[in-house]
Design a protein around this nucleic acid. Sequence first.
DNA 1: TTTAGTGCAAACGATTTGCAAAATA
DNA 2: TATTTTGCAAATCGTTTGCACTAAA
Lengths: 133, 133
Amino acid sequence: MAALKYSRQRESIKHFLAETKDHPTADAVYLHVKKEFPNISLGTVYRNLNLLTDIGEAVKIATPDGGDRFDGRVEPHNHFLCKKCGRLLDLDLDMRSLEEVNQLAAENFDGIIESSSTLFYGECSDCIKKSSQ
Amino acid sequence: MAALKYSRQRESIKHFLAETKDHPTADAVYLHVKKEFPNISLGTVYRNLNLLTDIGEAVKIATPDGGDRFDGRVEPHNHFLCKKCGRLLDLDLDMRSLEEVNQLAAENFDGIIESSSTLFYGECSDCIKKSSQ
DNA sequence: TTTAGTGCAAACGATTTGCAAAATA
DNA sequence: TATTTTGCAAATCGTTTGCACTAAA
């Protein structure tokens, strides 16, 4: 396994993931980092996002509609997908609840449960406001 | 919205989804239904899987590795993805636990939570057996 | 100077779509 | 007959990869 070398592009991608709560797609990351590195290629963005995911510095989130999203928050937490506007938001359960869910699941299951990721669906507060106007 | 017409291909897809617990990919559905309809095309399979998903007769499951899976069980339930063999299995929490999770989430969240889907990760019992031999 | 990372473009796998023909209502 | 569905093929979307070059160690 090759030694890791510093790269400004990767650093920029990390910073963007750290500062945003948007759960951007690879393409959104590309468009953002392009401002700082106009020549960066989408391939480089994908390579770095996968690398960061592999070493545990980012998380890949699969949703049933469209491409994967990336998240710089790597502690266990969950997400909410708004059926109206399509935005993906953080949704935190406290640690205990999180572990309870895994334990409840383990009771009904034969294998070993190491982790879990829940995607909640519904309508976000912004969309509720808009539709009540 | 166009009226729905019967089609044997769609019926065959539905039956396959109803009888299997495999959470097949679109391609796996295609390969199976092809036995009964040798001329069926992958496009038809996709069109029907999406249609069934839209009208609530199937569920699309996104996983972080590879294509979407389809499930004929439409009542709320969860899934387990084995990190070793990659199999996707059903994992049932009882109704009350399921609703508890959604309620716990609602406490920390501003919008409306309608449903949720949890993907558990770990090692399935088959893989545990194999590695302990 | 050795190794890892980049940009580019081509290739890839999964999914969607336009269209003329076939099946259903 | 009117409308939906199909098979086919081409197109599209998201992602990966080979390669010659550049940057980091």
